[in-house]
Protein backbone atom coordinates (compact mmCIF):
# COMPACT_ATOMS: atom_id res chain seq x y z
CA UNK A 1 0.00 0.00 0.00
CA UNK A 2 1.50 3.36 -1.02
CA UNK A 3 1.30 6.20 1.49
CA UNK A 4 -1.79 8.39 1.26
CA UNK A 5 0.39 11.45 0.80
CA UNK A 6 4.14 11.48 0.54
CA UNK A 7 5.94 14.80 0.24
CA UNK A 8 9.71 15.04 -0.24
CA UNK A 9 11.67 18.28 -0.05
CA UNK A 10 8.84 20.24 -1.56
CA UNK A 11 9.80 23.77 -2.59
CA UNK A 12 7.57 26.45 -4.04
CA UNK A 13 8.63 29.97 -4.86
CA UNK A 14 6.59 32.82 -6.26
CA UNK A 15 8.01 35.41 -8.57
CA UNK A 16 6.18 38.70 -8.35
CA UNK A 17 5.86 40.41 -11.68
CA UNK A 18 7.20 43.81 -10.70
CA UNK A 19 9.96 42.78 -8.39
CA UNK A 20 12.61 40.43 -9.58
CA UNK A 21 12.99 38.79 -6.18
CA UNK A 22 11.31 35.54 -5.26
CA UNK A 23 9.12 34.70 -2.31
CA UNK A 24 9.85 31.30 -0.88
CA UNK A 25 6.45 29.99 0.19
CA UNK A 26 7.62 26.45 0.88
CA UNK A 27 11.27 25.88 1.62
CA UNK A 28 11.65 22.09 1.49
CA UNK A 29 8.79 20.33 3.25
CA UNK A 30 8.96 16.58 3.88
CA UNK A 31 5.90 14.83 5.25
CA UNK A 32 4.29 11.41 5.02
CA UNK A 33 0.68 10.58 5.82
CA UNK A 34 -0.06 6.89 5.66
CA UNK A 35 -3.29 6.40 7.43
CA UNK A 36 -6.79 7.72 7.18
CA UNK A 37 -6.69 10.51 9.66
CA UNK A 38 -7.44 14.15 10.21
CA UNK A 39 -4.30 16.16 9.87
CA UNK A 40 -4.18 19.72 11.13
CA UNK A 41 -2.09 22.11 9.10
CA UNK A 42 -1.24 25.04 11.35
CA UNK A 43 0.94 28.09 11.05
CA UNK A 44 0.89 31.88 11.03
CA UNK A 45 -0.36 33.98 8.11
CA UNK A 46 1.88 33.54 5.12
CA UNK A 47 3.42 30.33 6.43
CA UNK A 48 2.69 28.46 3.21
CA UNK A 49 -0.35 26.38 4.18
CA UNK A 50 -2.55 27.40 1.26
CA UNK A 51 0.39 26.96 -1.08
CA UNK A 52 0.83 23.40 0.14
CA UNK A 53 -2.89 22.70 -0.29
CA UNK A 54 -2.81 24.13 -3.81
CA UNK A 55 0.15 21.99 -4.79
CA UNK A 56 -1.38 18.83 -3.38
CA UNK A 57 -4.64 19.53 -5.19
CA UNK A 58 -2.74 20.08 -8.50
CA UNK A 59 -3.68 23.76 -8.78
CA UNK A 60 -0.02 24.76 -8.55
CA UNK A 61 3.13 22.98 -9.60
CA UNK A 62 5.98 22.57 -7.16
CA UNK A 63 9.17 24.46 -7.97
CA UNK A 64 11.19 21.44 -6.90
CA UNK A 65 10.82 18.31 -4.81
CA UNK A 66 8.23 15.60 -5.24
CA UNK A 67 4.80 14.81 -3.90
CA UNK A 68 2.81 11.62 -4.37
CA UNK A 69 -0.82 11.01 -3.61
CA UNK A 70 -1.71 7.33 -3.22
CA UNK A 71 1.56 6.57 -4.97
CA UNK A 72 0.86 8.79 -8.00
CA UNK A 73 3.16 11.66 -8.77
CA UNK A 74 1.46 15.05 -8.73
CA UNK A 75 3.35 16.37 -11.71
CA UNK A 76 3.35 13.36 -14.02
CA UNK A 77 -0.10 11.96 -13.18
CA UNK A 78 -2.27 14.92 -12.21
CA UNK A 79 -5.51 13.37 -13.50
CA UNK A 80 -5.22 10.31 -11.26
CA UNK A 81 -4.47 12.59 -8.34
CA UNK A 82 -7.51 14.75 -9.15
CA UNK A 83 -9.80 11.71 -9.08
CA UNK A 84 -8.73 11.00 -5.52
CA UNK A 85 -8.53 14.48 -4.12
CA UNK A 86 -11.22 16.97 -3.13
CA UNK A 87 -10.44 20.54 -2.23
CA UNK A 88 -12.39 23.21 -0.39
CA UNK A 89 -11.01 26.71 -0.01
CA UNK A 90 -12.53 28.65 2.86
CA UNK A 91 -14.79 31.63 2.44
CA UNK A 92 -17.79 32.26 0.30
CA UNK A 93 -16.15 32.47 -3.08
CA UNK A 94 -16.01 29.69 -5.59
CA UNK A 95 -19.70 29.06 -6.17
CA UNK A 96 -22.05 30.18 -8.93
CA UNK A 97 -24.25 32.54 -6.89
CA UNK A 98 -27.19 32.96 -9.26
CA UNK A 99 -28.07 29.30 -9.55
CA UNK A 100 -29.31 26.81 -6.97
CA UNK A 101 -27.23 24.63 -4.71
CA UNK A 102 -28.36 21.56 -6.62
CA UNK A 103 -27.41 23.13 -9.97
CA UNK A 104 -24.01 24.06 -8.58
CA UNK A 105 -23.38 20.50 -7.47
CA UNK A 106 -24.69 19.03 -10.73
CA UNK A 107 -22.22 21.18 -12.66
CA UNK A 108 -19.27 19.99 -10.60
CA UNK A 109 -20.49 16.41 -10.84
CA UNK A 110 -20.23 16.74 -14.61
CA UNK A 111 -16.72 18.17 -14.35
CA UNK A 112 -15.79 15.09 -12.34
CA UNK A 113 -17.34 12.92 -15.05
CA UNK A 114 -20.06 11.28 -12.98
CA UNK A 115 -22.83 9.81 -15.09
CA UNK A 116 -26.23 11.42 -14.83
CA UNK A 117 -27.80 8.87 -12.49
CA UNK A 118 -24.82 8.80 -10.09
CA UNK A 119 -24.63 12.59 -10.18
CA UNK A 120 -28.29 13.02 -9.26
CA UNK A 121 -28.07 10.55 -6.39
CA UNK A 122 -24.81 11.99 -5.12
CA UNK A 123 -26.18 15.56 -5.18
CA UNK A 124 -29.32 14.65 -3.25
CA UNK A 125 -27.35 12.58 -0.78
CA UNK A 126 -24.81 15.34 -0.10
CA UNK A 127 -27.43 18.09 0.12
CA UNK A 128 -29.28 15.97 2.66
CA UNK A 129 -26.12 15.27 4.60
CA UNK A 130 -25.07 18.93 4.71
CA UNK A 131 -28.53 19.94 5.94
CA UNK A 132 -29.20 21.88 2.75
CA UNK A 133 -32.00 19.72 1.34
CA UNK A 134 -34.71 22.23 2.25
CA UNK A 135 -33.01 25.06 0.40
CA UNK A 136 -31.44 22.96 -2.34
CA UNK A 137 -33.34 24.63 -5.15
CA UNK A 138 -32.85 28.22 -4.06
CA UNK A 139 -30.15 30.48 -5.50
CA UNK A 140 -26.88 30.21 -3.61
CA UNK A 141 -26.64 34.01 -3.27
CA UNK A 142 -29.49 33.83 -0.74
CA UNK A 143 -27.50 31.46 1.48
CA UNK A 144 -25.80 32.40 4.73
CA UNK A 145 -22.06 32.05 4.95
CA UNK A 146 -22.28 28.81 6.90
CA UNK A 147 -24.61 27.32 4.30
CA UNK A 148 -22.25 28.30 1.51
CA UNK A 149 -19.40 26.67 3.35
CA UNK A 150 -21.40 23.46 3.71
CA UNK A 151 -22.20 23.58 0.03
CA UNK A 152 -18.49 23.92 -0.63
CA UNK A 153 -17.85 20.82 1.41
CA UNK A 154 -20.52 18.99 -0.60
CA UNK A 155 -18.82 20.17 -3.78
CA UNK A 156 -15.46 18.90 -2.56
CA UNK A 157 -17.02 15.49 -1.86
CA UNK A 158 -18.98 15.18 -5.08
CA UNK A 159 -16.64 12.59 -6.62
CA UNK A 160 -16.12 10.68 -3.39
CA UNK A 161 -12.42 11.52 -2.98
CA UNK A 162 -10.16 9.51 -0.66
CA UNK A 163 -8.42 12.68 0.45
CA UNK A 164 -9.96 16.02 1.25
CA UNK A 165 -8.17 19.33 1.66
CA UNK A 166 -10.03 21.91 3.71
CA UNK A 167 -8.40 25.34 3.79
CA UNK A 168 -9.83 27.25 6.76
CA UNK A 169 -13.29 25.74 6.34
CA UNK A 170 -14.77 27.10 9.56
CA UNK A 171 -13.77 30.76 9.40
CA UNK A 172 -16.85 32.85 9.97
CA UNK A 173 -19.03 29.97 11.11
CA UNK A 174 -21.08 30.39 14.25
CA UNK A 175 -20.22 28.02 17.13
CA UNK A 176 -23.08 25.64 16.42
CA UNK A 177 -22.31 25.52 12.71
CA UNK A 178 -18.63 24.94 13.47
CA UNK A 179 -19.51 22.12 15.86
CA UNK A 180 -21.71 20.44 13.25
CA UNK A 181 -18.96 20.91 10.72
CA UNK A 182 -16.49 19.19 13.00
CA UNK A 183 -18.89 16.30 13.49
CA UNK A 184 -19.01 15.96 9.70
CA UNK A 185 -15.24 15.90 9.44
CA UNK A 186 -15.14 13.09 12.03
CA UNK A 187 -17.67 11.16 9.96
CA UNK A 188 -15.48 11.57 6.90
CA UNK A 189 -12.57 10.03 8.75
CA UNK A 190 -14.79 7.14 9.89
CA UNK A 191 -15.49 6.50 6.22
CA UNK A 192 -11.78 6.01 5.68
CA UNK A 193 -10.94 9.39 4.20
CA UNK A 194 -7.92 11.45 5.04
CA UNK A 195 -8.65 15.08 5.79
CA UNK A 196 -6.08 17.88 5.67
CA UNK A 197 -7.45 20.75 7.67
CA UNK A 198 -5.95 24.23 7.72
CA UNK A 199 -7.07 26.30 10.63
CA UNK A 200 -6.07 29.15 12.91
CA UNK A 201 -8.35 27.83 15.64
CA UNK A 202 -6.16 25.88 18.05
CA UNK A 203 -9.07 24.49 20.00
CA UNK A 204 -10.55 23.21 16.78
CA UNK A 205 -7.30 21.58 15.73
CA UNK A 206 -6.96 20.00 19.13
CA UNK A 207 -10.50 18.68 19.14
CA UNK A 208 -10.49 17.39 15.59
CA UNK A 209 -7.05 16.44 14.44
CA UNK A 210 -5.29 13.15 15.07
CA UNK A 211 -2.08 14.81 14.13
CA UNK A 212 -0.87 18.37 13.82
CA UNK A 213 1.69 19.80 11.49
CA UNK A 214 3.04 23.23 12.15
CA UNK A 215 4.53 25.25 9.32
CA UNK A 216 6.40 28.49 9.74
CA UNK A 217 8.09 30.42 6.95
CA UNK A 218 7.62 27.52 4.58
CA UNK A 219 9.28 25.01 6.87
CA UNK A 220 7.92 22.18 8.96
CA UNK A 221 8.40 23.05 12.61
CA UNK A 222 6.44 20.22 14.17
CA UNK A 223 4.67 17.06 13.06
CA UNK A 224 3.25 15.10 15.94
CA UNK A 225 0.18 13.13 17.07
CA UNK A 226 -2.05 15.63 18.85
CA UNK A 227 -2.06 13.70 22.11
CA UNK A 228 1.74 13.90 22.39
CA UNK A 229 1.85 17.56 21.67
CA UNK A 230 2.65 18.50 25.29
CA UNK A 231 6.11 16.97 24.99
CA UNK A 232 7.18 20.06 23.09
CA UNK A 233 7.04 22.00 26.33
CA UNK A 234 9.69 21.58 28.97
CA UNK A 235 7.16 22.25 31.68
CA UNK A 236 4.27 19.89 31.06
CA UNK A 237 2.18 20.60 34.13
CA UNK A 238 0.11 23.72 34.58
CA UNK A 239 -1.98 25.43 37.20
CA UNK A 240 -4.48 28.09 36.18
CA UNK A 241 -5.57 30.66 38.69
CA UNK A 242 -6.94 34.16 39.09
CA UNK A 243 -5.46 36.34 41.77
CA UNK A 244 -6.40 39.92 42.62
CA UNK A 245 -3.66 40.47 45.17
CA UNK A 246 -0.61 41.84 43.39
CA UNK A 247 1.66 40.99 46.31
CA UNK A 248 0.74 37.30 46.06
CA UNK A 249 0.94 37.36 42.28
CA UNK A 250 4.43 38.79 42.38
CA UNK A 251 5.57 35.96 44.62
CA UNK A 252 4.45 33.08 42.38
CA UNK A 253 7.25 33.28 39.78
CA UNK A 254 9.77 33.47 42.62
CA UNK A 255 8.79 30.06 43.98
CA UNK A 256 11.51 27.50 43.41
CA UNK A 257 9.25 24.88 41.83
CA UNK A 258 7.54 27.28 39.42
CA UNK A 259 9.00 27.35 35.94
CA UNK A 260 7.22 30.43 34.65
CA UNK A 261 3.95 32.37 34.86
CA UNK A 262 2.04 33.65 31.86
CA UNK A 263 -1.10 35.71 31.59
CA UNK A 264 -3.88 33.55 30.30
CA UNK A 265 -7.56 34.24 29.49
CA UNK A 266 -8.11 36.86 32.19
CA UNK A 267 -6.07 34.96 34.78
CA UNK A 268 -2.65 33.39 34.94
CA UNK A 269 -1.08 30.07 34.14
CA UNK A 270 1.89 28.72 36.06
CA UNK A 271 4.03 26.15 34.30
CA UNK A 272 5.59 23.40 36.39
CA UNK A 273 7.94 20.50 35.81
CA UNK A 274 6.71 17.69 38.05
CA UNK A 275 3.23 16.47 38.94
CA UNK A 276 4.16 16.78 42.62
CA UNK A 277 4.76 20.49 42.12
CA UNK A 278 1.12 20.90 41.15
CA UNK A 279 -0.05 19.90 44.62
CA UNK A 280 2.55 22.16 46.23
CA UNK A 281 1.47 25.18 44.24
CA UNK A 282 -2.24 24.50 44.79
CA UNK A 283 -1.68 24.31 48.55
CA UNK A 284 0.49 27.43 48.49
CA UNK A 285 -2.18 29.38 46.61
CA UNK A 286 -5.10 28.19 48.73
CA UNK A 287 -3.26 29.17 51.92
CA UNK A 288 -3.08 32.70 50.51
CA UNK A 289 -6.76 32.84 49.75
CA UNK A 290 -6.58 32.06 46.03
CA UNK A 291 -9.43 29.58 45.69
CA UNK A 292 -9.81 29.56 41.92
CA UNK A 293 -6.63 27.57 41.29
CA UNK A 294 -6.90 24.33 39.37
CA UNK A 295 -4.70 21.92 37.50
CA UNK A 296 -4.79 22.03 33.73
CA UNK A 297 -3.06 20.56 30.69
CA UNK A 298 -0.81 22.42 28.33
CA UNK A 299 -2.78 22.97 25.14
CA UNK A 300 -1.89 23.10 21.51
CA UNK A 301 -2.08 26.86 21.82
CA UNK A 302 0.72 26.81 24.42
CA UNK A 303 2.85 24.77 22.07
CA UNK A 304 2.01 26.99 19.11
CA UNK A 305 2.82 30.16 21.01
CA UNK A 306 6.04 28.66 22.27
CA UNK A 307 7.21 27.56 18.83
CA UNK A 308 5.99 30.46 16.73
CA UNK A 309 6.27 32.98 19.51
CA UNK A 310 5.90 36.63 18.82
CA UNK A 311 7.19 36.39 15.28
CA UNK A 312 3.75 35.59 13.95
CA UNK A 313 2.78 39.25 13.84
CA UNK A 314 5.93 40.38 12.10
CA UNK A 315 5.34 38.47 8.85
Amino acid sequence: MPAVVEIRELVRTYRTRRKAEETVALGGVTLTVDDSEVLGLLGPNGAGKTTLVKILSTVLLPTSGTARVLGKDLVSAPQTVRENVGVVFGGERGLYPRISARQNLAFWAALYRLDRRTAQNRCSELLERMGLADRADEPVETFSRGMKQRLHLARGLIHGPRILFLDEPTTGMDPVAARDFRALVRELRQEGRTVFLTTHDMAEAEALCDRVTLIDHGRLVLDEPTRHIGRYLDARECVDFTCDDPAVLAQVPELAFVESVEPRDGGHRALLREPADVARLLVWLIERGVLSARRSEPTLEDVYLRLIGTRAMSV
Binding site: K54, S57, V59, R82, W108
Partner: peptide, 18 residues
Protein backbone atom coordinates in the same frame (compact mmCIF):
# COMPACT_ATOMS: atom_id res chain seq x y z
CA UNK B 1 -12.44 36.75 -9.64
CA UNK B 2 -15.14 34.48 -8.32
CA UNK B 3 -12.47 32.15 -6.98
CA UNK B 4 -13.60 29.30 -9.19
CA UNK B 5 -10.55 29.06 -11.41
CA UNK B 6 -8.55 27.01 -8.91
CA UNK B 7 -11.46 24.66 -8.43
CA UNK B 8 -11.84 24.24 -12.17
CA UNK B 9 -8.15 23.52 -12.53
CA UNK B 10 -8.36 20.93 -9.74
CA UNK B 11 -11.23 19.13 -11.50
CA UNK B 12 -10.94 16.40 -14.11
CA UNK B 13 -12.11 18.58 -16.99
CA UNK B 14 -10.10 21.10 -19.01
CA UNK B 15 -11.15 24.69 -18.32
CA UNK B 16 -11.47 25.25 -22.09
CA UNK B 17 -14.54 23.00 -22.27
CA UNK B 18 -16.25 25.02 -19.58
Amino acid sequence: WAGRMELLVASLTPVSLV
